[in-house]
Design a binder for these strands. Structure first.
Length: 105
RNA sequence: CGAGUUUGUUAUACGGUCGCGGGGCCCUUCGGGGCAAUGAGGAAAGUCCGAGCAGCACAGGACAGGGUGCCUGAUAACGUCAGGUGAAGGCGACUUCAAGGAAAGUGCAACAGAAAUAAACCGCAGGGUUUUUGCCCUGUAAGGAUGGAAAGGCGAGGUAAGAGCUCACCGAUACCGCGGUAACGCGGUAUGCCAUGUAAACCCCACCCGCUGCAAGAUUGGGUGCCUGCCAUAUAGGGCUGUCCGUCCGGCAGGUUACCGUGAAUAUCGCUUGAGCUUGUCGGUGACGGCAAGCCUAGAUAGAUGACCGUACACGACAGAACUCGGCUUAUCGACAGACUCGGAUC
RNA sequence: GCGGGAAUAGCUCAGUGGUAGAGCGUUACCUUGCCAAGGUAAAUGUCGCGGGUUCAAGUCUCGUUUCCCGCU
């Protein structure tokens, strides 16, 4: 039931140029079908200093872990959060669930 | 009681459920699973200094360039720290200071002002001339005006008017004596005081400094400009990571051919036991050092500390290791403790 | 992670320690029947920020903030 992390720079570039996109108020999800389920997070300097960026990544990892059961197929997924004043675990989880249901993953 | 100065400590705490990193032990169908521990800071930050470590260069020397700059000490080293000296600020506790040299030389000092390193605009006084106003010559630098700065300050004597011209006090410089390891301090004598500021302008003096940085570098395939073996040591030209003096170099044979590959960096090592931490004791005013006992305390690589619930209150600031240490600087809601100063009241 | 550089008017840039400038833009007036072009004049700056040296700092110096570039 585990998932793998998306690590290669080339995979990120492939998704950003040719992946399908789903939107929600707090984050953008980019995905494409693949052999395994891999998830990556893209957080840049515009999201804040290193403490803030680490916090976003932890919240997103935890949110993805809690909704992982609902994903049936295998995809490469990149999560891009939007720039906000503050971030919370519950809004991330809610929007992830919405997008998974809408896109029928 | 109020107002302050200074030094240090700390940086929400506890419990439950799920999850993450590396290591240990156990199990394994080799995919993995289980257990009990452990896992960000005082600044981890900025990268401003100093070192270790690594690679390259290097006989050695000179020049250039850069840095430091009161004294003594501490240290592996430092631009850091400690204790002193001097100066400035504060009633005080105390704080701050890139604090050598302007009599080696060069430069600069706008505007204003008579004049800016140089002497006379208004003045003051004496003499000459003239009826007087005035004009000319001489002396002078007290006063005025300008400026950041105007030829030590202030008072008395003195003088035609004045002036260190003379004298007392203060300041400055030189010498002597005493104290101190020294910076320097105290006292005495002499000199009427040969002369502004700027060295965070160039510079002089003293001391120090190879260059690059863990994305360094090494290992695990093949190969090259590489490796192995043999022979040779002259010139040209080139290299020697700022320049010069100076110093070094070459050829032949074999393997191998710009690609193969599984993936070739997204691997492994470097990577955490170290000028280490805690406690005690001894030496030192102190920074710090000696000795003894105990301890092992992150090591990731899309980059590990999170989510939820409960309890308590002060309702949680700044902020996240990336080779490692010693400092500095900057950010920071607060809490606690020690020492000291000033003011008021009471005994 | 490591190493360089910049910040000056609305924009692009000059600026030996001594009153901060140029071009474009803006505003007003002239010119024209009207507009453009042209001419005349004016306004516009905590010299990124905070200390220090100096009589005097945009310039020298220390710290700090933001941005850009190179190594990879």
């Amino acid at each position: 039931m585990n998932y793998l992390r998306l690590k290669k720079q080339s995979d990120f570039n492939k998704l950003f140029s040719g992946g399908r996109r789903a939107f929600s108020p707090s984050l953008t999800m980019i995905y494409a079908p693949a052999k395994q389920l891999r998830m990556g997070i893209s957080v840049g300097k515009r999201h804040g200093k290193s403490v803030q960026r680490n916090r976003i990544k932890r919240l997103l990892r935890e949110a993805f872990r809690s909704v992982r059961e609902e994903i049936k197929g295998n995809y490469f997924i990149v999560l891009v959060p939007k720039v906000r004043e503050d971030y919370s675990f519950f809004t991330f989880r809610k929007h992830l669930q919405c997008m998974i249901g809408k896109e029928k993953l």
